[in-house]
């Protein structure tokens, strides 16, 4: 069975004053129909750039494709013209952004922002699009949609705006929904509601979801598979169980250790010391080497290749080389009381 989306060796760089920033450096992953893939990693690891490049929304210039392909429907999106992309955006692939406060046009009523896509992709009349907009608002759980549809974003709360954003993204029944940290800007109770909503919507419409987050808690509850990004690369992928119960990459360990445990006391929140590599001058070897407590001499100069640990799990770390010392995941990375969905 062919995949819905196959990203191969994708590289994206930005020209800046400080030189070329290699934001994404050879990322490979794929997406099946109806599944949810989570991309996790800390700030600056290239998650958003990866996600936006799937829709060709990375501003170019200063950005540019430095290689790789994005195959969707047997066609390489990298090769498409802007005009051709317009037919795919919003129709086949759509996106929800991190900050609902800034991602809606403040001077346009919500209803109009929903119907635009419908009019463009489904040739609906204004009237029909308006009615469909009301349905969509109902679907995403906005009370009183008939009245709400003519309001402006500032009349909505943060959570409601994100719901409206989801309604916009879902308007044309896309095959892929990319959600770039859809809950980061919201408070905890709303976060859970939005995630529930996304899961419900997925069940109802069958969209595949790419969920970007730096919160492993969110991943546990929402994703089937996980890709861990660091320094513009995917350092480990696997299904949820593998990533949570059998992680092999020290960075994944670090992420798991920094996750609050349900039973543990929250004192034990272990942040990973140090900060991510400068992508304007990326390290030659493993991007995590400067912060990795297990780093070896080889890590500095040679990028580890992927070790296939199972059908689904791949990890890029020299520790998996047979010459490396045996290292166990630290106690703190054990998931313990965390509930893993499914």
């Amino acid at each position: 069975m062919s995949k819905l989306l196959e990203v191969k060796d994708l590289s994206i760089a930005f020209d800046t004053y400080g030189g070329e920033v290699q934001a994404v450096r050879g990322v490979t992953f794929d997406l099946d129909e109806k599944e949810t893939l989570a991309i996790v990693g800390e700030s600056g690891s290239g998650k958003s750039v990866t996600a936006q490049s799937l829709m060709r929304l990375v501003p170019m210039p200063p950005g540019k494709f430095a290689g790789g392909s994005i195959v969707f429907n047997e066609e390489d999106l990298v090769e498409k013209s802007d005009k051709q992309m317009e037919g795919i955006r919003g129709k086949d692939i759509s996106m929800i952004f991190q900050d609902p406060m800034t991602s809606l046009n403040p001077t346009m009523p919500i209803g109009k922002q929903i119907s635009e896509g419908l009019i463009k992709h489904q040739n609906m009349s204004k009237k029909a699009a308006h009615n469909r907009g009301i349905e969509l608002l109902k679907l995403v759980g906005i009370p009183n949609p008939e009245r709400r549809i003519d309001q402006y974003p500032h009349e909505y709360s943060g959570g409601m705006r994100q719901r409206a954003m989801i309604a916009i993204a879902l308007a044309c029944n896309p095959k892929i929904l990319i959600a770039d940290e859809p809950t980061t800007a919201l408070d905890v109770t709303i976060q859970a509601q939005i995630l529930d909503l996304m899961r419900d919507v997925q069940e109802e419409t069958g969209t595949a979801i790419i969920l970007i987050t730096h919160d492993l808690g969110v991943v546990a509850n929402a994703a089937n598979r996980v890709a861990v990004m660091y320094g513009g690369k995917i350092v480990e992928t696997g299904n949820v169980n593998e990533i949570f119960y059998n992680p092999k990459h020290p960075y994944t360990w670090g992420l798991l250790s920094s996750m609050p445990k349900i039973d543990g006391d929250d004192e034990e929140l272990l942040a990973i010391p140090g900060s991510p590599p400068d992508l304007a001058d990326p390290p030659k070897g493993c991007p995590f080497a400067a912060r990795c407590p297990y780093a070896m001499k080889v890590c500095e100069n040679h990028m580890p290749e992927y070790t296939h640990l199972s059908e689904t799990q791949q990890t890029a770390c020299w520790l998996l080389d047979e010459r490396a010392p045996d290292v166990e995941a630290p106690e703190s990375a054990m998931v313990g009381g965390t509930k893993v969905h499914e």
């Binding site: 140090g274 900060s275 991510p276 590599p277 400068d278 390290p283 080497a289 400067a290 912060r291 407590p293 297990y294 780093a295 070896m296 001499k297 080889v298 890590c299 500095e300 020299w318 080389d321 010459r323 490396a324 010392p325």
Partner: peptide, 17 residues
Amino acid sequence: DFEPLQINDEEAEKIAG
């Protein structure tokens, strides 16, 4: 090559920012 690397704190700082 597989001996542990001495992490140099200053170095880490420099790379960082």
